[in-house]
Design a protein around this nucleic acid. Structure first.
Length: 205
DNA sequence: AGCTACGTGCTT
DNA sequence: AAGCACGTAGCT
């Protein structure tokens, strides 16, 4: 709902060329879906700072050449100082909001899930009773993305990876957005996340 | 009700 | 082992 923190004033991001390219694009869906909050930008920032190298940046080149869409956005975002500041603001605001909201006891990282119990450790707190499914069995709860790893912080799909291309049948998130934690096997791993979480907290808060 | 994406089984 | 396809949990 557009209550409290109604989006600043850069909402327009949508109708602009951006909206178009995205829609035209395969990745469009994502952006559209994500734009519920309308923030492909926040991601870009994340991209340039962390992930861009592994996927965004590199791909960008390919895009411009073959598909030429996503990069457009990026270029625009970075190109216009105006937009730049706007993004910064929004991004900052968001982060801040998150922090404050989750400042309760944990740093922003946990922003991933406000009410549900997702632990930084990547564990899904099987909070409450597993509604569905039989009582005794440990319902096969879905783990949730940690929300703090590089991939998680990325908001836009590459649109070219197998997951993006096969979205119809694959039902998988963009490979570049696949949470590092979810890549690991459910049972394994301990608190490998903490570090990154801290960093993230440091950077944003 | 519809969408996104995690989990898992099958195929390559 | 990696990728694909499907079922469905979780969310809006």
């Amino acid at each position: 709902s557009q209550t409290s923190l109604s989006p600043p004033s850069w909402q327009p991001a949508h109708h602009h060329p951006n909206g178009n390219f995205l829609q035209t694009y395969g990745g469009a869906a994502d952006c559209g879906g994500m734009s519920k909050q309308g923030h492909a930008h926040a991601d870009m920032m994340g991209l340039s700072e962390a992930g861009s190298c592994n996927g965004g940046g590199v791909m960008g080149g390919g895009f411009l050449g073959g598909l030429g869409l996503p990069p457009g956005v990026i270029v625009m975002a970075m190109g216009s100082a105006d937009a730049g500041s706007a993004f910064q603001m929004t991004g900052g605001q968001r982060a801040l909001t998150d922090c404050q909201q989750h400042a309760n006891s944990s740093p922003c990282p946990s922003a991933s899930s406000p009410s549900s119990g997702v632990t930084a450790a990547g564990g899904v707190a099987l909070s409450s009773t597993s509604s569905s499914s039989s009582a005794g069995a440990v319902a096969k709860r879905k783990r949730k993305r940690c929300g703090v790893c590089g991939p998680c912080r990325r908001l836009i799909n590459c649109g070219v990876c197998s997951s993006c291309r096969n979205r119809k049948t694959g039902h998988q998130i963009c490979k570049f957005r696949k949470c590092e934690e979810l890549k690991k096997k459910p049972g394994g791993g301990g608190g490998v996340l903490e570090p990154s979480a801290l960093i993230w907290a440091d950077l944003t808060c």
